[in-house]
Amino acid sequence: MKLLLDTLSTWAVPLLVAGIPLYALTRKVNVYAAFLEGARGGFETGIRIVPPLTAVLVALGMLRASGALDGVARALAPLLDPLGVPASVLPLMVIRPLSGGAALGVVGDVLRSEGPDSYAGRLVSVMCGSTETTFYVLAVYFGAAGITRYRHALPAALLADLAGMTAAVVVVRLLFGG
C-alpha cells in the first residue's frame, strides 16, 4: 500500500506533464498554442496575489514577533494536557493555520527532541499532514479572484482545522496508544 502510494506520488507529475499533451495530440488539439494561451494568465494571477498575501503575512508575522502566539499556547497548555495534547505539541496547533514554514519547524523540533516514534512525534506528524495553512490558502485563492469579503469561509475553515486536530489526537491514541 505504501509502495503504491509512493509510486503514485512520484510518477503523477511527470506522467501528467507528458500524458496531457500526448492525449491532446490524438484529439487533434493545437497543443502548443493551447498551452501558451492558458499559460498567459499565470503571471498576472501571481502578481494579483501579492497585495492580499502581503496583508495576511504581515499580520501573522507581527503576531509571531509580538509573542502573542506563544502566549496563547502557554495559556491553553493546562487545559489541553489532560485531553491528551502534550505541551510540546500545542505550539503546532496554534501556528498550523497561520504559517506553513513555522509549523514544519515545530514538527521538526518535536521529532528531534521526543523522537518520531513517540506519542508526541506521531501526533505532530498526523496533525501537520492532515491540515493546511488556512490563512495562506484563503489569501491566495480569494486574492486571485478579487474577493475581499470571505463571509463564513474563515470560521468554517478554522473549525475544520480544529476538527482535524481533535481527530488526530483520537486516532493516534486509538492506533498507537497514548
Partner: peptide, 13 residues
C-alpha cells in the same frame, strides 16, 4: 501557475 494553467488549457481543449 504558468505551467499548470497552460497544461490545463491543453487538457480542456
Amino acid at each position: 501557475l504558468t505551467l499548470w494553467l497552460g497544461l490545463m488549457k491543453v487538457a480542456e481543449e
